[in-house]
Design a protein around this nucleic acid. Structure first.
Lengths: 171, 171
DNA sequence: TATTGTTATACTCTATAACTATA
DNA sequence: TATAGTTATAGAGTATAACAATA
């Protein structure tokens, strides 16, 4: 794949001086070749910010955000997650999970069910309403991601997926 | 590259029932094959959280965080960024830039200099102290990223870089 | 003793609107 | 009229400690 244009390979000093000529040069073009523009962590943070904003906007009509969508998704799976497990997988503090589940439960989308093997633990499961909402939200999110990666081949998407999984789970 | 083990390809239902046997199965292993575990946006968010936490810990002795480090990095480049440009490139609100620059300026790391071509605008430039701190921080950050990608070939790193740039800047 | 979920709290990050000084 | 920076403020996200119930 090839995402960078030849313009981006131009030296930043030349671009800086060309500003005086009045040509509108975007901040992206002016800074893309600095240290930070080459910094993987920064790119990761910016990519996430872009995608997170897009997904939040997408889910707004359903009164969901990326966080609540993530919890709902796992609640809709057949894995019977506990709150502790949700906290680990979503990389959130257990107290944040409490607040997220509280709101989803108030809306009748998930239920806290007692875990027969450990009465300290709650199993989080989606209600029928939760499953229905997820059936609406899931395809929306998938389509948005599809669009964001539309210029990548199937092989490239697999690679990107592999890289992110590696970093996200230290594998 | 190949980051997933054969264990991860096992069905989640089998894993769920195996819990009763008492084998300690991590949340990662239990959920990695759910919809969410295959969700690029989620992986992006988690990868960013992992890396951001690592970098914040790394920079703590220098009293920097990823945000202030980013601003300092651009201030140290030869591009003479305005606050507006910093906001665009870092994907932050201009008011957040104000607060970040305020703290860096108090510490004597950067200066607001008047832009001769537009008196509304400030050019942000690193002081000698700022350059010195960045000379310390930059290699630390680079080394940490190097470590996080140590299992990737040079070609794979290029690919990851390309993917993230694409998503981060809609290219 | 250790762990799950809970509550309370504080701090950081993010988003919005209104203001000023310049253009 | 529009833009760069500023201020104030509120809301979302993050982190910590302490507690009750249970293991």
């Amino acid at each position: 794949m090839e995402t960078r244009t030849s313009a981006q390979l131009t030296g930043s000093a030349a671009e800086a001086t060309s500003r005086q000529a009045g040509a509108a040069v975007s901040a992206t073009d002016r800074f893309i070749d600095t240290d930070l523009g080459q910094d993987v962590d920064f790119l990761l943070a910016r990519a996430r910010a872009v995608r997170s904003a897009a997904t939040n906007a997408l889910l707004e009509p359903l009164d969901l955000r990326v966080r609540s969508y993530s919890v709902l998704s796992l609640a809709c799976s057949d894995t019977n997650p506990s709150q502790k497990e949700l906290a680990q997988f979503l990389d959130l503090d257990p107290s944040q999970i409490v607040a997220l589940i509280d709101r989803l439960e108030e809306r009748g989308l998930v239920r806290r069910e007692p875990d027969p093997r450990d009465r300290r633990s709650n199993v989080i499961r989606a209600t029928a309403a939760g499953q229905a909402l997820y059936a609406e939200a899931g395809p929306l999110v998938a389509k948005s991601q599809e669009l964001a990666m539309s210029s990548l081949t199937a092989r490239d998407r697999e690679r990107l997926f592999g890289y992110l999984t590696m970093v996200a789970f230290n594998r």
